[in-house]
Design a protein around this nucleic acid. Structure first.
Lengths: 162, 162
DNA sequence: GTCCTATCGTTGACGGGTCATCCACGCCGA
DNA sequence: TCGGCGTGGATGACCCGTCAACGATAGGAC
């Protein structure tokens, strides 16, 4: 609950995080576009659906796992339906609900994108050794959880503890 | 030049960085909106201009310092002109050039936003101790510089070495 | 059954960000 | 002086992401 103001160091830390993230995201975007013709947002949806039973999830669960707002998900799914990467299906047990299902084309795009995506990340983070990567990840997680303890647990809740 | 594919750990690291950044940015956005009626993008421009001599910079330099694309800057300045936060001025020595100048209203908005912005960052990063923050920053910097050695130097080139 | 409230999802409006394109100007060499 | 190339910047189209508002259903209290 401290309300001290950020020092120079924190401003610069924040700036560097923003730049890091934008740089990598841009590279992922280009690579995915070239390999598979999909965007980063498309790809995140596809890989999440792929790892779910029957390649489908309730919209609500999908949003939770990704940490997205429901409206963002809805817009995204609409765009992806247009590209035939996913389909919407009615949910019989809850008439409010919607299943988002990956299509064959979705699978194929995910296949084509996977390697490049991994390569970009591997190359970018290669300048850090393994213990640094671990530390970095745990720091990021701690900062997020400090403000919202419930946030990072949705994936485990749905897919089971790792 | 390795083309190994990313392991689970890197995928998860990347995911956590994306979430961290979105969470903090969202909080900054809301706080700035409430305190000063400006967006994060607005605020970045305002504080950069404020720290420059005469409160103005060439569009090109402003873009370099922020690490933005020139078109992004142009769109942003257009929006900000509409809110009277900045003005464009012709550059007499290079007729292609444009100065972006902070207005009185811009100064005032920056004043109102400053504290809240700093507070949010201070609070978020409070869960890390000082050496962790330093490490985190240096890691972020290293990752960025590994892919683009020229990137982070523009600020120093314009404002002088720190 | 009837209300009341909470949840699920969609939509429209709007700011953010990239890309491709365009034009004006600076720079330089013939 | 002219032509050609590089740079500075603006613009339009398009996708991304948030917010506010909405309609519809679920689920509990009574």
């Amino acid at each position: 609950m401290s309300s001290r103001t950020a020092a120079r160091a924190e401003l610069s830390l924040w700036r560097d995080i923003v730049i890091l993230r934008r740089k990598i995201e841009r590279e992922l975007e280009q690579r995915l576009q070239q390999d598979a013709g999909v965007s980063v947002a498309d790809f995140e949806i596809l890989t999440t659906l792929r790892s779910a039973p029957d390649g489908r999830l309730r919209a609500r669960d999908l949003a939770d796992v990704l940490g997205w707002e429901k409206s963002r998900l809805s817009h995204q799914v609409t765009r992806m339906e247009g590209k035939s990467l996913v389909e919407r299906q009615d949910c019989p047990t809850d008439l409010r609900g919607t299943w988002v299902v990956i299509t064959e084309q979705g699978h194929s795009a995910a296949d084509r994108g996977e390697n490049g995506y991994g390569e970009v990340l591997a190359n970018r983070f290669d300048v850090l050794d393994e213990s640094e990567r671990t530390d970095l990840d745990s720091m990021a997680r701690r900062v997020v959880q400090a403000s919202d303890p419930a946030a990072c647990d949705s994936a485990e809740a749905i897919f089971g503890a790792s």
